[in-house]
Design a protein around this nucleic acid. Structure first.
Lengths: 186, 186
DNA sequence: TATTTATCTAAGCAATTGCTTAGTATTGAA
DNA sequence: TTCAATACTAAGCAATTGCTTAGATAAATA
């Protein structure tokens, strides 16, 4: 009966996600979204309700995509702490576009979603997920007790966020120094 | 000849700075500014040219204020690395308002000023300044050679930025774990 | 083929954005 | 006191924001 959608929601959300990642939430207008997503405003609102709806789906898409691109491997890796270090470096490359680092969409967004509990929860949940992977890997070192693992996992997520923001204003060398130094401590 | 200004530019800029710090650049409208600064739009534009002008002055005010509030002491301290650690903790308290951490105005802004070289320079310059203070303090340890000092200074500025962003979404405990771990072997 | 149901185009809505302008008030020198 | 120079008030500007609506188009069932 109904007419067919001329677009895949997943495909247009991926494009929306990149737009938000590149420009930030507030700086991305619905006009920009319709251009980048390749569909018009009616379709955007019909599929995702409002701009916040597009953003929420974009956050979720980012999480899913990042997980499959990198975190899954990390989770299954057996190189211990060294694999976490590799993740830090790989993420930087992953976030690169036209020679500049875009940082992490989630970390970038924290400053723009002031008070929106849904977005905050979406972001915090992913941080917890990464932290759990770090804990699992840290635990493969039998010399570390539970308390130390907890501490070091907290250490690593904050460090990861540091890399993410710092990558937007510092150079490769300073980032490398940081990452190397971070893992001296583990 | 001229009529006197009924406000001090420094005073209204301080209020503007807090508004930007609390809400972010894009989320702060000129209407909000005129309300918070206590002067009307004409005066804002007469004194600071445009919204970007207010923001630039706010960034500069933030830098100056933070320097006199904390960095000056750090620069003159003789406690070595321990004083840097104290700075990490003190900054967190300094950034607190109504029970939540506001992060660092400069770090928060990085994501919103995409491509504006003036703002980027303003921010990067301050990072360099802090880095130099870190280097100076690290150098008081005679066991560290120049290369190590360089590396550890890079390590510390990225770590500081990590604390700043992470404070906006993680809890006190995780932040403490991070800071403690950062300074374990410096 | 006719009808139903949903998708599309494109025009337009009120509200908000950053900014300007016309007119009035206040100051201090001539 | 007069007058030029600046600061103020308040209204309003065009452009952009997020979002809606009316009407045309397409698809699958009856």
């Amino acid at each position: 009966m109904p007419r067919k959608k001329s677009y895949s929601e997943d495909e247009v959300i991926e494009k929306a996600m990149y737009t938000f990642w590149k420009n930030g939430y507030k700086a991305t207008s619905v006009r920009m979204l319709e251009k980048e997503m390749g569909i018009n405003q009616f379709s955007i609102y019909a599929s995702f309700k409002d701009k916040d709806g597009v953003f929420l789906k974009s956050l979720q898409f980012y999480k899913k995509k990042l997980y499959h691109a990198m975190l899954e491997d990390l989770n299954n890796s057996e190189n211990g702490v060294e694999s976490i270090k590799k993740y830090f470096y790989d993420f930087l490359e992953y976030s690169k576009e036209n020679g500049t680092y875009k940082g992490c969409l989630l970390t970038n967004s924290v400053n723009e979603i002031e008070g929106n509990e849904i977005f905050i929860a979406e972001i915090a949940q992913f941080a917890t997920r990464i932290r759990n992977i770090f804990k699992k890997i840290l635990a493969t070192d039998k010399n570390k007790n539970e308390q130390l693992i907890e501490k070091q996992a907290n250490y690593l997520i904050v460090a990861l966020q540091g890399v993410s923001v710092a990558s937007r204003m510092l150079g490769k060398e300073q980032l490398n120094d940081f990452i190397e130094e971070v893992f001296v401590n583990l």
